[in-house]
Write a protein that binds this DNA or RNA. Structure first.
Length: 514
RNA sequence: CGGGGCGUGGCGCAGUCUGGCAGCGCGCCUGCUUUGGGAGCAGGAAGUCGGAGGUUCAAAUCCUCUCGCCCCGACCA
């Protein structure tokens, strides 16, 4: 592109985001977050500042998920950010999994150094780690709270931040600090704990599908992808628009591993003493990254109405100053009527944007992903109508409704958008989920045509796997493809391993992953 | 931590090879015009060119070091 061409671009721009998804997906993702005003990078490496528009989205996710947890008997609590180093050391697998990404606090004071700069002073007797997850410190409480089978099950959750010092970070998908919830439960029997593990996975799947409008595959992780210290890890996997998989929630059956490590013992009805069976399950602000990559387009963010930061932007239009009062009054009245409408677990959220910035104003809301934009001018007032655009339709495709009709139908319209986003994501997933039985085809599926600048390719390959780590590693090394999960549904019986040809009990989901 | 790319007003970038007044588009501010839609004209504000050191009469540009970001690996929600 010459400089002259570039300078002419603003006049010719067709999409609000450059580059487009097809041109450069990772860069498109960054740009969507920037122009939609969700978040920005922080001065601290690998961390992010979640801005009000992004935090509102998170609050909506939290509200819905929290209600679902509580409906299953879970209560909220809060445990400390700092964990004694000795606690982490208690479970060998757990140490191995998390030790290398722990932030460690070693001092409790700052002093002026010789050069006048502040230096850490006051060495702590035992270093504290900043929680990467809270199994150990919650286990410590459980060990004191649980004495009898009558204390079980113990069903707790906490909403908090955690820190995992990552090599490579991506905003919302993998940041050094992130917000999440972690549920921790203790049970008298393995069966009950296993049931809970599955129950919470289903909550995550419902959250993803019914609220975030993201279809997911439910399944079980392979041993190599399991949570450090867990007996079994269940997950939901979603397909992003670049056809890569995103793990959107995990639920772990921890067996008695952590109970042994933290001495969580209880007296049974027949007076023996046993270790409790525990579970843990988590989902994070990564869900926002998934929402962005599942729905947004080349004009910016698209938010499913059920979790959207807000539902409707009202854009009053006037030509002369004397028209303004009437338009503003009509807008305010419409806002009041819309705000009285119940949508899901909250009322319809309305933004009034009375900036006098011409047409650019509408594009701001498109980029920010609001489901509905309503233009209100003198003509609409005369006709007692509203003229509105939907984020799931092209920007210029707008329709008119009478004001009463719009207020009466807004819930139906929002539901329709929600459903359409889900269906669109489901189609993408279906079109790019393929049964593959021949190794050659498998390799072709996951090999981009342009190795230097890979185009969007691949998807979910439903193929057979013999169960050996050798074969799992082979495809990982050859293609950077991993087994996302052993799915619960869509099994088609036994077959031959895609890698070695040995017998395989079921198809598994192979994909490139975030 | 290894390989590649990149750091220049809020955003996107040119200028770097070949050292010579720091520029362009969008955005922002003011005024006039316009008004059913990403407005037009005029004027304006905003940069220690990521940072430090060096070479030079002169450094965005050359050299050394350093910090950060993006992509590809290794690791992960």
């Amino acid at each position: 592109m010459t400089r002259e061409e570039r300078n002419r671009m603003p006049k010719q721009v067709k999409t609000a985001i450059t580059p487009t998804r097809a041109e450069d997906y990772p860069e498109w993702y960054q740009q969507v977050i920037k122009v939609s005003d969700l978040a920005e990078r922080s001065p601290v490496r690998g961390c992010m500042v979640i801005k009000p528009w992004g935090y509102a989205l998170w609050e909506n996710i939290v509200r819905e998920m929290d209600a679902m947890f509580k409906a299953t008997g879970v209560r909220n609590a809060y445990f400390p950010l700092f964990i004694p180093l000795s606690f982490l050391e208690k479970e060998a697998q757990h140490v191995e999994g998390f030790a290398k990404e722990c932030a460690v606090v070693t001092h409790h004071k700052l002093e002026q150094g010789p050069d006048g700069r502040l230096v850490p002073a006051g060495l702590l007797p035992e270093p504290l780690i900043v929680r990467p997850t809270s199994e150990t410190i919650i286990g410590d409480s459980f060990s004191r709270w649980i004495k009898s089978h009558r204390d079980l099950p113990m069903l707790l959750n906490q909403w908090c931040n955690v820190v995992r010092w990552e090599m490579r970070t991506r905003i919302f998908l993998r940041t050094s600090e992130f917000l999440w919830q972690e549920g921790h439960t203790a049970h008298a029997t393995a069966e009950e704990a296993i049931e809970r593990t599955r129950m919470m996975l289903d909550v995550y799947a419902r959250m993803a599908e019914d609220y975030l409008a993201i279809p997911v595959v439910r399944g079980r992780k392979t041993a190599s992808e399991r949570f450090p210290g867990a007996v079994d890890t269940l997950c939901i996997e979603a397909m992003m628009q670049d056809r890569k998989a995103l793990q959107a929630g995990t639920s772990h059956f921890l067996g008695q591993n952590f109970a042994r490590a933290s001495e969580i013992k209880f007296h049974t009805a027949d007076e023996s003493e046993e270790y409790a069976w525990t579970t843990s399950w988590g989902s994070s602000t990564r869900l926002i990254g998934g929402l962005i990559m599942a729905h947004s387009d080349d004009d910016g963010l698209i938010m499913p109405p059920r979790v959207a930061s807000s539902h409707v932007a009202l854009l009053p239009i006037w030509r002369t100053p004397d028209e303004r009062p009437a338009v503003m009054a009509y807008t305010a009245e419409l806002a009041a009527r819309l705000r009285a409408v119940r949508y899901g677990n909250r009322n319809v959220q309305v933004e009034i944007d009375d900036r006098d910035t011409g047409g650019a104003r509408g594009w701001d809301w498109i980029k920010r992903g609001i489901p509905l934009r309503v233009e209100i001018g003198p003509r609409d007032i005369a006709a007692d109508a509203v003229f509105f655009g939907r984020r799931d339709l092209p920007a210029r495709e707008k329709s008119a409704l009478s004001r009463d009709q719009f207020v009466a139908e807004i819930v139906r319209i929002l539901d329709e958008i929600q459903q359409k986003l889900f269906n669109r994501a489901l189609s993408l997933k279906k079109e790019n989920t393929i049964l593959i039985d021949r190794q050659e085809e498998f390799y072709r599926f996951f090999t981009p045509l342009n190795a230097d600048k890979p185009e969007i390719h691949g998807g979910f390959a439903m193929s057979h796997w013999c169960g050996s780590e050798t074969c799992e590693n082979r495809v990982k090394e050859d293609l950077k493809v991993t087994i996302r999960c052993l799915p619960f549904e869509d099994q088609t019986g036994p077959g031959a391993c895609i890698c070695c040809g040995k017998p395989s009990p079921q198809r598994v989901v192979f994909a490139k992953a975030y």
